[in-house]
Design a protein around this nucleic acid. Structure first.
Length: 852
RNA sequence: GCGAAAGUGGCGGAACUGGCAGACGCACCAGACUUAGGAUCUGGCGGGUAAAACCGUGGGGGUUCGAGUCCCCCCUUUCGCACCA
């Protein structure tokens, strides 16, 4: 990496004692903080104190922190420090999501073992975090790639297996050729690998371990309603991902010869009430029955193969919605079980094998897609739903002719034999019951969510604790033999499958059941397993007998505030929710959901693009700290915009925040006032000093409100700037003010500053003679009386036009306000020749008055 | 195509329930202190005008004494979903 020329802001000519030198302040305090291990330590579970668990998503130790991390942790740290000051027992931990492919890639490239590379990165990034001053309880640090952590992944896996929630299955899975491993559905974004955004995934038929997340589909969906502290966006994304739809399965018997795939085609429909309108069946090109149909017809075979290829390609591009509908008749028929009608069977490219059953009944009259298809191929279109509710006029002045395709939500069924006249909802229920009674169908709920494939053909992950014995088959490693330790000195390449398979000494073992020879599972676990439960481990990070102590976890859980990027809306956040439900059912925790509130911070961009190495628009936190200090860097990430928005990085902006901090520092140097227990009364303050007191309390209110409400810390910092601007422009008034007033003012400024610029706050706290720990100092008390304005501005309108603004006493009556308005010159001029004057009191009620 | 969020000076952004649009910061301009200024301080800074008036929150309508904010229509950007039967 090229040397960057680090230019520090000049502080020449500022008096020595007034010079703000963040590096020396910060290094001094950093050394003090980290030599006092108790400082940021969460107290043990204690039912007498209210707990507050604030958590930021743990980083992958890729080498160095990036600005996105700094922003994420600055938000969390501000909150944690604020909650400490509010008297909560705060848990604020940090750890490392340290298994994963980049370590292997680095190992291949640099010939360094993944473990060494990873631990080296962790050490460096931890030093960066300490330098940045994030108040973490490092005694609870979690490193997922170490056996004391991952043994519990294995333990949980055995529990999953025991409960039937982990199983092995051969199926089509997503394969990323660049990662050389399988991916879960959640890890495929737009047909591409989530890490390699332009690498399309391939489909491979492999035998893999799956976790039965679908057992919790319904609860995962239902409980989203409870997550009111989560962004609506994330809840919507999860809802879509789970993709629940209610409907029915219906079996259609084949008419004619029966092949290998059986004698019935089962379709899934959400509209069984339209089954009399079905005029064909449509199968996905990959449907197993299709293979039977095309076997003896080379022409048909070719056409279907084309369709398969086309679907695969569209899926890779993530553009499956864009391909034009087409299909081919198979020459075969199936029987509608409701009316005995023979329906032609087609293969169509718009039918997806991985949703429902991969087969549909086509109802062109009431489904847009079916309608398009039927029009193209001249298939029958038969309406079976009345175009309107009875007695209600239809739109378009065409009372009885349905405009096709007519998608009625709740109308009456027609042309459907004995079901005629039922409402659609009734018919859906009754027809599904009828199908079940006659053994050809039943009401069903389907989900888009699929089970979580967790096998990875990679080295740097948790070994799956399973054995294969020729005699006993699949055998779980006994609990007391955990952890199954990942061997070191393994030859890592991306070719040839799981690297662990090439370590005979590790693979070959004995079967715990029969004592014979057995082979270990050579795949490792998806790293998302690690991050699905790490936050529980923080509550009891050093437990050697269990993943954590239940009572302790139950004290801390749920997480009060979770903070991270929105990119995990589906991945990590759905797995974590699943895991919580699973361990709740194991009896380990009481909570149904891991996090009460979730905050997703915005991305950082520079020069209009997301920061990335390839674009060369990254900003190094180290450089910023070197140049402006940790406080300025952190405060800038909070000041530039509100935390939920995209942040447009500008170095000059950091400089501005640096200047503000320097100004604070100078103000304290110029107004030395030791807190010595003296008091003063507000009554003795000059009007100017009274104004400062008012501004102070308005600032306390503003910042407190920001913490409790919208987290617009940019306006919190701005409010502090305003306060300081007022203070420094009121130097004369301050010179005349009681020292105790200044001491009180400074004490409050330090406390308000602390969440945003902790180093400077600690330095100044000491300077004003405070001996208590700032972290435990009580958050400033807001005094409403002091904050109140003495005068308010009144806008005066004449016939609807704004004609003047005047000050009136806050306590003025309506009548007094009117008098004051009428006495104003500008208003008098404006009234000239007019009939009506209207006044309004800003933020008060409307006052109309008529003159002349 | 569907859904959500957003659109405000030269720039990042304020304006919580309708009430001085542009807080705060950056950049810029002028001045002070200075050998110097890239430190610090003071003042200015949407357009327009000598000063007012007046015009200004993507565009067009509307409600209101009053609209960046509420309602209707349209445009643009970003994000999410996208043949889910």
């Amino acid at each position: 990496m090229p040397e960057t020329n680090i230019e520090k802001p000049s502080t020449q000519n500022v008096e020595r004692e007034e010079r703000y030198e963040p590096q020396s302040i910060e290094e001094k305090w950093s050394a003090r903080w980290w030599s006092q291990p108790d400082l940021f330590k969460a107290d043990p579970a204690d039912t007498n104190r209210k707990k507050y668990y604030v958590l930021e998503m743990l980083p992958y130790p890729s080498g160095v922190l990036h600005m996105g991390h700094v922003r994420n942790y600055s938000i969390g740290d501000a909150l944690a420090r604020h909650m400490w000051m509010r008297g909560f027992n705060v848990l604020h931990p940090m750890g490392w999501d340290s298994f994963g492919l980049p370590a292997e890639n680095a190992a291949i490239k640099n010939k360094r073992p993944p473990k060494e590379w990873t631990l080296g990165n962790i050490a460096y990034m931890k030093s960066q975090m300490k330098r940045l001053g994030f108040a973490y309880d490092w005694e609870r640090e979690v490193t997922t790639c170490l056996p004391d952590y991952y043994r519990w992944n294995q333990w949980f896996f055995l529990k999953l297996y025991e409960k039937g929630l982990a199983y092995r299955k051969k199926s089509k899975v997503n394969w990323c050729p660049e990662c050389a491993t399988v991916l879960a559905n959640e890890q495929v974004v737009g047909g591409c690998c989530w890490r390699h955004e332009t690498t399309p995934v391939e489909q491979r038929e492999l035998e893999q371990w799956f976790v039965r997340t679908t057992d919790y589909s319904d609860e995962l969906l239902r409980d989203l309603e409870k997550l009111e502290g989560w962004p609506e966006k994330v809840r919507t994304m999860q809802r879509n991902w789970i993709g629940r739809s209610e409907g029915a399965m219906v079996d259609f018997k084949l008419d004619g010869p029966i092949g290998k795939a059986g004698e019935t085609i089962t379709v899934f429909t959400t509209r069984i009430d339209t089954i009399y309108g079905a005029t064909s069946l449509q199968l996905a090109p990959e449907h197993p029955m299709v293979t039977d149909f095309i076997a003896s017809d080379p022409d048909l075979f070719a056409k279907v193969e084309d369709m398969r290829a086309e679907q695969r390609k569209a899926k890779e591009v993530g553009d499956i919605g864009a391909i034009e509908k087409h299909g081919v008749f198979t020459g075969r028929y199936a029987v509608n079980p409701f009316n005995g009608e023979k329906l032609p069977i087609w293969v169509a490219n718009y039918i997806l094998m991985d949703y429902g059953t991969g087969a549909i009944m086509s109802v062109p009259a009431h489904d847009e897609r079916d309608y398009d298809f039927a029009k193209k191929y001249g298939l029958d279109i038969r309406p079976v739903i009345l175009p309107r509710r009875q007695g209600e006029p239809a739109g378009n002045g065409e009372p009885d002719e349905p405009v096709l395709p007519f998608v009625a939500e709740d109308s009456l069924v027609m042309n459907s034999g004995e079901w005629n006249g039922l409402s659609c909802t009734e018919a859906q229920k009754k027809m599904a019951e009828y199908a079940e009674q006659h053994g050809f169908g039943k009401a069903t709920v389907t989900y888009r969510l699929k089970d979580w494939g967790i096998s990875r053909q990679r080295y740097w992950g948790t070994p799956i604790p399973m054995l294969y014995c020729d005699k006993c088959g699949v055998v779980p490693v006994p609990e007391e033999q955990l952890p199954v330790v990942l061997p070191e000195n393994v030859d890592i390449t991306l070719a040839g499958g799981s690297p662990l398979g090439r370590v005979p000494g590790w693979v070959n073992t004995t079967c715990p059941k029969c004592g014979g020879a057995a082979r270990r599972e050579t795949d490792t676990m998806d790293t998302f397993v690690d991050s699905s439960w790490y936050f529980y481990r923080y509550t009891d990070a050093k437990n050697d007998d269990a993943p954590f102590d239940s009572a302790t976890a139950n004290y801390w859980f749920p997480i009060d505030q979770y903070i991270g990027g929105v990119e995990h809306a589906i991945l990590h956040l759905i797995y974590s929710r699943f895991w919580t439900k699973f361990i709740r059912d194991l009896g380990l925790v009481n909570n149904d959901e891991p996090a009460e509130r979730l905050f997703t911070q915005g991305m950082i961009i520079k020069n209009g693009a997301k920061m990335s190495k390839s674009l060369g628009n990254t900003v190094s936190p180290d450089d910023m700290v070197e140049r402006y200090g940790a406080d300025a860097t952190r405060a800038y990430t909070l000041f530039a915009t509100s935390p939920d928005r995209e942040l447009d990085w500008q170095d000059a902006g950091v400089e501005g925040v640096y200047r503000f901090l320097a100004k604070v520092y100078r103000f304290f140097a110029q107004n030395p006032a030791l807190v010595d227990g003296q008091t003063y009364s507000v009554a003795e303050l000059s009007p100017e000093a009274r104004k400062i007191a008012r501004k102070l309390h308005q600032t306390i209110r503003k910042i407190s409100d920001d913490f409790n409400g919208r987290w617009h810390f940019n306006t919190s910092v701005a409010a502090l700037m305003e306060l300081l601007n007022l203070c420094s422009s009121s130097q004369q008034a301050l010179n005349a003010a009681p020292r105790a007033f200044i001491a009180d003012l400074e004490r409050n400024i330090v406390m308000l500053l602390h969440p945003f610029a902790p180093y400077l706050a600690y330095e100044l706290w000491e300077k004003i003679g405070q001996t208590s720990d700032l972290l435990r100092a009580p958050w400033p008390q807001f005094d409403a009386e002091l904050a109140k304005e003495e005068e308010i501005e009144m806008a005066v309108q004449v016939n609807g036009k704004l004609r003047g603004r005047i000050l009136v006493a806050a306590e003025a009556t309506e009548e007094e306000a009117k008098q004051a308005a009428m006495a104003d010159e500008k208003v008098q001029a404006a009234i000239e020749g007019k009939q009506i004057v209207k006044t309004i009191v800003i933020k008060g009620k409307l006052v109309n008055m008529v003159v002349r």
